[in-house]
Computed example of a mutant assay.
Amino acid sequence: MSHPPLQNAAGPLPALNRRMFMMTTAAGAGAAASAGASAAAEAGSAAPNPGTGSRETRVTINGRLHELKLEPRASLLDVLREQLGLTGAKKGCDHGQCGACTVHVDGRRVASCLTLAVKTDGCAVTTIEGIESADGTLHPMQQAFVDHDALQCGYCTPGQIMAAIACVREGHASSDAQIREYMSGNICRCGAYTGILEAIREAAPHVHRMDSRMEGSRHA
């Protein structure tokens, strides 16, 4: 017994086949995706401004006081490079493993890629841009690196120099073995380690004398 075709207001419904089923399903999925994108766009426009979570941070960098509004998750390295234009510290690995981003915070060396910028509130930060004299004379460690060709491509050199100064000040430059040990966190992919060792060995007494003069002038 035959049955009459199904009817709707527009007339008989077409017979359902595999092709029609696939086309209908695809059209439905597209409409759902479009609706989801519209909803996401509306939600995004209503999301709070990330700047509303910023924190006031006062930090002295290379002798100059900066009053900054910082996103709590921002690294010191990114703030130095992207907000302050101090690009001497390099982003090598961004995981604290290569030492290219080494700077000093209150006289101690740190990996700036792992240091939250807001944690330097009230601190003194020194970068490679801040170690030469006011008259433009190179720091003794910088000069020693030049004299001993302690660099090749130069990408790691700012971090090497900042770590080397800290190594001397920490009292860890009394022997070649000690220098190697306490500079092991700074990687030179060009392999200029021999020159770096010679530079630190030569510059160490000059760094000590410079620090003694600065200490004396502060107490004068």
Rank of each mutant, 00 (worst) to 15 (best):
P140E: 10
S212F: 06
A46L: 11
D211M: 14
M20A: 15
I179V: 15
C190V: 07
E215C: 12
G30Y: 08
N8C: 14
L76H: 02
A32N: 06
V105D: 05
D94V: 02
D135Y: 12
A35V: 10
R201Q: 15
C123Q: 09
I196Y: 14
M20P: 00
G96R: 04
G85M: 09
P48I: 07
H208W: 05
A134R: 12
A41K: 12
R201S: 14
L77I: 01
S175G: 10
R180C: 03
C93Y: 06
N8G: 14
M1C: 09
T24P: 00
H3A: 14
M214E: 15
C156L: 10
A117R: 00
P48K: 08
A32C: 11
D147E: 14
P72R: 09
H95I: 07
A32H: 06
A163F: 02
A26G: 09
P14Q: 09
H66E: 06
K91T: 00
S75M: 04
G85V: 06
S212T: 02
V79K: 03
A32Y: 07
G171F: 07
G30W: 10
G96E: 03
R58D: 11
M22G: 03
R189F: 07
G30P: 01
G51T: 05
D176Y: 04
A41Y: 05
A203M: 13
A192L: 05
G28E: 04
G53I: 03
A144E: 02
S175K: 12
C190L: 09
A74P: 02
A134V: 04
T120C: 15
T102D: 02
C101Q: 01
I61H: 00
D106A: 06
Y155G: 01
T127V: 09
H172A: 12
V110T: 02
R201P: 04
V59D: 01
I179P: 00
D121G: 09
V103H: 05
Q160A: 11
G53D: 11
G11D: 11
H219W: 13
V79N: 01
A37D: 07
Q142N: 06
S217H: 14
C101T: 00
D135L: 13
T194W: 06
A46W: 04
G92I: 03
T137C: 10
T52M: 12
E82D: 15
R19H: 13
A199S: 15
R109S: 14
L138P: 02
G195V: 08
G96N: 04
R58G: 06
E42H: 09
A204T: 01
C113N: 06
L77M: 06
N186G: 05
R108D: 11
I131E: 04
A26T: 09
A164S: 15
G53F: 07
A15H: 12
D78Y: 11
G92D: 09
N49S: 13
S212P: 00
S34M: 13
I179C: 05
T25W: 11
S174D: 15
S212Y: 04
G122S: 12
C101V: 01
I128D: 00
S34E: 07
E202D: 15
G28C: 10
T60M: 13
E82G: 05
A33P: 00
V79A: 03
E181F: 08
A27D: 04
Q152K: 08
V118L: 11
L65D: 11
R108Y: 07
T24R: 14
G88Y: 02
L16Q: 10
E82V: 03
L86H: 02
R109I: 03
Y193N: 08
A89T: 01
G36D: 04
P140F: 09
A166H: 12
S217K: 15
